[in-house]
Design a protein around this nucleic acid. Structure first.
Lengths: 154, 154
DNA sequence: GCTATTAGTTAAGTCGGATTGACTATATCG
DNA sequence: CGATATAGTCAATCCGACTTAACTAATAGC
């Protein structure tokens, strides 16, 4: 078996364990928050990438402008998003996440990550160091991949 | 900084990169399939854990029996789930995933994993070996954690 | 054997997600 | 400057997710 194949198998296996648990925790949190998954997608977009316009949000969510407008209405009404006129184009609006929205997202991230915070205790110091190194390599490689994907026209 | 803290930070960082991309690919796939996320949750449950009853499914989805019944109706109608009478209890039904459902789930898993299959090329052989070892440790530790969580009354 | 409980279904209702179409205000282009 | 394009919103509509309530058939318990 090639080293690349072993790699892929190992990542696949970890991915299944990780996804299964993390998604479960995420869906649980979202449900308990009273919001929907698409609403959280909108919030996370603003949280991780900063403010954007309605069209950008619409493109990100891959839905029509009308759908976005209605969803953003609800999030604005809930105090989770702020919508202001774009100073450089009077037709447009700028969306930013409110402090309340930010706090909610952070709480969600915490909730979905909590399960693996007990993992260090199950590994010895040597294993932990190895994992740290490996994950850093992975994260770096994945970010490079993301950057090069972004540059490729689709 | 403690080794445990470094570990947690590394996993957190990888988790963000991984989740961001993987969820995006997953949502894209689900949307293109014409099914909803809750429907996929039901299918994945059957795929990974085998057949179960309606009540079990209802508990897994964390919704009422009526919601489950209606959703399962749609999946049965779409040929993705099979629903038969439970031979040991005439009141109950047994749900299993159909071949069509299985194929769809597998296609989805493939779709959400495709992005990181190019990662090996970005790492040298030494790094790859280290990652394989680390991920195996992680997967094992996570499975042990899952098993002990299951045994803990909630 | 009778009563209580259970497994699942059906109906009715609300909600958010999503679409299309129409519209207004604003920006761009020739 | 007028015509066209654009950014976003509103209305109407459909759909699936989800709830509650009521119901039937089957099982469990005494």
């Amino acid at each position: 078996m090639t080293s690349s194949k072993q790699f892929t198998n190992a990542l696949r296996e970890w991915s299944e364990v990780f996804m299964s648990r993390t998604m479960r925790e995420w869906f649980r949190f979202v449900k308990s928050s009273g919001l929907s998954l698409p609403q959280f997608s909108a919030l996370m977009r603003l949280y991780y990438h900063g403010g954007c316009g309605m069209s950008e949000m619409s493109a990100h969510l891959d839905v029509t402008a009308a759908a976005t407008s209605q969803m953003v209405d609800r999030l604005v009404h809930a105090g989770l998003i702020e919508r202001v006129e774009d100073p450089s184009d009077r037709r447009a609006k700028q969306l930013t996440i409110s402090e309340k929205g930010r706090a909610l997202v952070e709480k969600g991230i915490e909730a979905r990550n909590r399960w693996w915070e007990y993992l260090p205790a199950a590994l010895n110091a040597e294993q932990r160091a190895a994992v740290v190194e490996a994950l850093n390599s992975l994260a770096e490689a994945a970010r490079a991949l993301e950057a090069s994907d972004t540059k490729t026209p689709t």
